[in-house]
Structure formats: structure tokens, C-alpha cells
Design a binder for these strands. Structure first.
Lengths: 215, 215
DNA sequence: GAATTAATAAAACGAACGTTTAATTAATTC
DNA sequence: GAATTAATTAAACGTTCGTTTTATTAATTC
């Protein structure tokens, strides 16, 4: 047999990407064979090579598009306001929403970096660094404006990103907590962690960190 | 050739473990071949099978001993005091010290879980859960005692652990920050995050989260 | 409706994999 | 110092891997 009735390159490529994200997230890139992937899509292994020249090209494509999507999402969500608290809140909300929606792709992008060639690894890390820099800028502006109080901008940014991305490890939709509840909790943890002051109004003094920012 | 002069089972086994942790952390479990591991140790691949019946047995041994070490370390570091702030500080300090000292082994234990059989995965996860439960207990006791203020004990525990373990991703000894500086920063971020009150003394009231606890 | 192009199947290639078997030598025991 | 045990090598086994080649059919073009 050869070309099958109703076959369509675009549909097949989309099916390959989707199946690949799911399989690599579940088994790992090295453990997933091209034959396994082809079987999941419902084609022969050779058909995959019409869309992706090598297995690594497939991985790189998935990762690059994930990172591009993350940068685009933040560009769209970035608030016009200059207020560091508003900007930090937007960053946290966008980060958590994006990653919960793309648990599998995030897993792939975070865990399979070592399977990329040096050059491609550099490309992905460049995008990641650009994204992290956005957070560092918000934190630095916040410290300079007196809105945040923290030890070290770089260290705090890394801690926050690890904390937020970690959501995908344990969060399962439809369990005890809703996405909105999780996001609200992470937002208040973030604001306390960066020592955010109450941005407006004249709240009564407190010895407690918990109500530093009303959310 | 056969047995080589000066060869010693105990030394070889130790060399295998050490090389395996390093190689698996760098390449990933699936990507590391037994021949590669043997070459790193300086023996033939067949020699490895005197010490570990299968590749997976080797992985499981490394993971189990890592987790046992973590639980033992916490047992040794656990303070006698009942004060939640003291206990939380001890937990954070022990966690960071242990993981920075064992970056490679931590990487293996966190990233290669999917290569374990179902039964062995369960064993490792049981140990991990027991360790996490210690933190949840501290947080719950702290909330009940009025020392902490947070939304959700379980969620906060996961956020803290992800944040702290994330240290191994970016921290490199001998760079900008010392282990002591990093630990101090993480400690103060933790205390702010959990909304810790000033445990003793009569510090002046503040609208800021940053000085909730003197560290 | 013939010619062309797109999408696939089927089969094979050489390399590498985890593991086993058998032989060999160093160290230890008695 | 002979017998035994521990530690290892060398070679091979069957399987699976990523990938390539070739043939075949569906869809599209003119």
C-alpha cells in the first residue's frame, strides 16, 4: 500500500506534533522511539521523515514553538501600567495560566534540553533568558521604586520561576483546587516573598507579612 | 585478559556508582549506555553486571540511597524545639545544604523517575511523600500556633520545595554567591512567603513584609 | 483524462543497545 | 603450593534503534 484515502499533510503533521509532545512528556525523548510515535499517529515510521528530517529536529521544533508561544503570551499580557506590583501580578498570572494549559509541552521544554545540539540548546536558552530577564526587570524596578524589599534580584527571580513552574508537577485540573484558587495563592505567596508593600491606601500597621498586599 | 592486578570489588562498585550518578545526570538515564559507563570506570561492560543485575537496578539503587540519605539527614538535623519558626528554618537549611552537596544525585532522583518499574517508583515516591509530610506538619503547626499565615498548607509546602530544590538548577559553587548567602536569602524568602510573625521581642510595627522575621 | 505531485507503505541498513556466556587471571584459603 | 574464589575480559546474542530507499497510490493540475 502507499498513500491512504483522505490523507493530508497538514493534518498528519499536527497529529505528529501532538502525539510527540504527549509521548515525550510521558516516556522521555530518548525512550520514545520513532516507531512508537508513528504507531500513535497511525502511520509508518518513514512517514514521519516527510515532516521532520530527524528526531532531534522534531524535538527542537516542539521546544522552539513552546518558547516562542511563552514570549508571545507575555507580550500580549504585559500591562501598560508602570506599577511594579501590577506588572508582577500580570507576570505571575500569565506564567501560571500558560504553564498549566501546556503541562506536557512545558515538561518537554524543561526536561529534554540535554538532547539538543549545542547550537540549538543555545537558541532555546536565549529565549528562556529573555523571558526571565523580564521578571528581573520588574523586580529591580520594584526595588528602586520602594515597592519591593528583597535581598537579590537574580536569586529572587530564579526562586519565583522555579516555584511557579513547579505547579505543573503536582497540579491536576479538577482535583481539590481550581486554577483560579491556585493562581490566587501563588500570587499572594509571590507578593509576600518579594516583600511587596501595600500599593495604595492607608492600611493599619502590622507585624505580619501575610497582609502586605491585598489581593 | 581477565582479572587485573589490584582490582577490588568494593572499589569498583563505588567507582561505578559515582560514575553512574555523574553520567546519568549529564546525559540522562536512557541516553547513557552501559558501555559508556564501563569505559568511564575503566572496565568492560560485563563487569558492571557483577554489581548490578540490570541497568534499572543500578538506577533504583542510586535513587533509593539518595532518598534514604535525605531522610536520615533530616532526622539528624531536626531540632528539639517545638517552635515552628525554628523547625522551618532547620528544614530549609537542611534541604538546601543537602541538595547543593548532591546536585547530580538530586538531578537523577528528580528527573529519571519514569524509568523505574511501577513498584519501585512507588517505593521512591513513598519516601519522598514522607519527607514532604514533615514540611506540611511544620506549616500546619505554625498556622495553628499563629506563627504563620498562609492560604493552603499543601500548596505552600509544594511551592517551597520546588523553590528550594530549584537551587541546583542555577547555583554553581564559587560563583557570585556563597552557599551561606544563598541559604540566608532562601531562608528569608521562605519566612516571608509563609507570613511568619516575629517570633520574639517587640519589634516596631511595619507595613512591609520583608522584616517579618529577623534572620 | 493524462501528467504531475503529495503522502504514504514496505522493507531493508548498519549501528548500537542491554545482557549472557565462557574463558582467564589475581587473590585468598587451607 | 594446590585448590578455591573473586574479578574481570573477550566475544557473542538477539533486539531495537534512527534512518534511507524504493515502490505505490491518492489527489491535484492542466
Amino acid at each position: 500500500m502507499a498513500r491512504t484515502t483522505g490523507s493530508d499533510g497538514e493534518k498528519t503533521e499536527a497529529a505528529v506534533r501532538e502525539a510527540a509532545v504527549s509521548l515525550i512528556a510521558r516516556l522521555g525523548y530518548e525512550a520514545m522511539s520513532m516507531r512508537q510515535l508513528a504507531a500513535e499517529v497511525g502511520v509508518q515510521a518513514a512517514a514521519l521523515y516527510r515532516y521532520f528530517p530527524t528526531k532531534e529536529d522534531l524535538l527542537f521544533t516542539l521546544m522552539r514553538e513552546h518558547m516562542e508561544g511563552l514570549l508571545r503570551a507575555w507580550d500580549a499580557a504585559r500591562p501598560a501600567s508602570a506599577d511594579p506590583v501590577t506588572r508582577l501580578a500580570a507576570y505571575v498570572e500569565n506564567h501560571i495560566a500558560f504553564h498549566i494549559e501546556r503541562r506536557h509541552a512545558t515538561h518537554v521544554s524543561n526536561m529534554e534540553l540535554r538532547s539538543l545540539s549545542h547550537e540549538r540548546l543555545t537558541q532555546i536558552l536565549k529565549m528562556r533568558t529573555a523571558y526571565e530577564k523580564e521578571l528581573r526587570t520588574i523586580l529591580r524596578d520594584g526595588v528602586e521604586a520602594g515597592a519591593f524589599e528583597l535581598d537579590d534580584t537574580g536569586l529572587t527571580a530564579m526562586a519565583l520561576i522555579q516555584m511557579m513552574t513547579g505547579v505543573i508537577v503536582w497540579f491536576r485540573p479538577g482535583e481539590r483546587l481550581s486554577i483560579a484558587e491556585v493562581t490566587a495563592s501563588y500570587l499572594s505567596m509571590t507578593m509576600r516573598l518579594v516583600g511587596a508593600t501595600i500599593s495604595h491606601g492607608t492600611a493599619p500597621p502590622s507585624r505580619r507579612a501575610g497582609n502586605a498586599v491585598a489581593l
